[in-house]
Design a protein around this nucleic acid. Sequence first.
DNA 1: TATTGTTATACTCTATAACTATA
DNA 2: TATAGTTATAGAGTATAACAATA
Lengths: 138, 138
Amino acid sequence: MMNESVILELQRATHATLHLLMTELADLDLTASEINALGNLADGVERTASELGAAVGSRPATLTGILDRLERRGLIVRGPRQGDRRAVQISLTPQGDQTAALIRRALTDIEDRTLAGIPADAVAGAGVVLRALTGAAR
Amino acid sequence: MMNESVILELQRATHATLHLLMTELADLDLTASEINALGNLADGVERTASELGAAVGSRPATLTGILDRLERRGLIVRGPRQGDRRAVQISLTPQGDQTAALIRRALTDIEDRTLAGIPADAVAGAGVVLRALTGAAR
DNA sequence: TATTGTTATACTCTATAACTATA
DNA sequence: TATAGTTATAGAGTATAACAATA
């Protein structure tokens, strides 16, 4: 057989999980990219726009629109970055923090449910492969 | 730490590899979704539009546009499906087959290069996890 | 009645390039 | 000069719903 490209499987899995995530979180009325951004911010670590862009895989120009909507809805705030006045620091508002926690819980739920019967070393291997593929683009 | 969600890593890896792939195949002047569709068709197996949609993770309405462009460029052909006249059979033209082979080679190159130092069982584990995540959405 | 695929609409994502402000 | 982020533009992806043809 031929259809075993990891990258093609990667894209299938991304589409499938993203769709599942948006269905479960439909009440939040957020797009996939907005969910992705909040999911990355959920750890409470403040990031500059470019750092967040690297984490979510969006270009600066794309991220501007995503952040515009999240800010307009009161989920994040743009502020100054100490020591570099060109950079924009992104922080969650209390409401954004609450929403991000819901997203984190949905992510964990889906992962727990999906990977229940799968050996821990397979999951660990997946992490290694995903990070290698992510790193390859630099 | 908190930022170790497999799904978030999945999205990062997808963005990164897709970007890399489009850069390497810039000469083809194809979008990510078009590359994805041709990459899935590269095995020479004919598929209906809905089967291809499931493989690439696109909805029917989205796929229509993707197929429109691929057909206009002479890379695929839409034909009838034996036994079900509602369905549309997608086949590669000779030119499409050639393009699909280039995509396959680029995919293989990236994967070989990226996963060179990674143990085979980690790669196998990644496959298991990716298929589990893909299957969870059903 | 249900399914396959297309069309229509509105919105979001994307790439690119030009721009402002800081460094 | 280089970097961080925004703006502008055009094209592509997305969800949704309505539709035609076929099952």
